[in-house]
Amino acid sequence: MSEKEFLNIVLPFKDKLYRLALQYLISKDSAEDATQEIIYKLWKNKTKISSYKNVEAFAMTMTKNYCLDQLKSKNSNNLKLVHSNYTDANSSLDKNMEVNDSVNIIKQLINGLPKKQRIIIQLRDVEQYTFEEIGKILGLKQTAIRVALSRARKTIREKITEKHNYGIN
């Protein structure tokens, strides 16, 4: 397989890998590194790629596992530092617009969710994977995904109305 053929397969879902890694690792730099690493691993195993039924789901699973490893390893100590830098830079970036403000609040709400729910929201509501695909990626049963998703969505709804009623920002 040539580099061009490989990239034709991989590039369409590259950003999905990145956004998933971002949900796990929070820091943009770490997420970039994770994406690069996963694609590099895929490239090394490129002879096997054609035998995978769903390369994208496989790559997403790899990303998930890689990120969990990263979080477990000692590197996770550094991530917290990067995390605080990251939120600061971001909130100042689009602070001015009211819509962006409320979108940022949603972002913070979602970041406050348990990790599993956060990832499922990302995979379903952002990337629009089916329950079957999410089940493959995360190694979970579809019913479990549905329950977690519903719980996550309801938590967001509750938090929004709370904020709305008390005017807390």
């Binding site: 490989f6 990239l7 949603i106 972002k107």
Partner: peptide
């Protein structure tokens, strides 16, 4: 805001070029 967030999140892309 919630649905806008989902749409906006999808605009977040990796800026690094992939090298294999």
């Amino acid at each position: 805001a919630m649905f806008t967030y989902f749409a906006k999140n999808k605009e977040e892309v990796s800026s690094k070029n992939i090298q294999v």
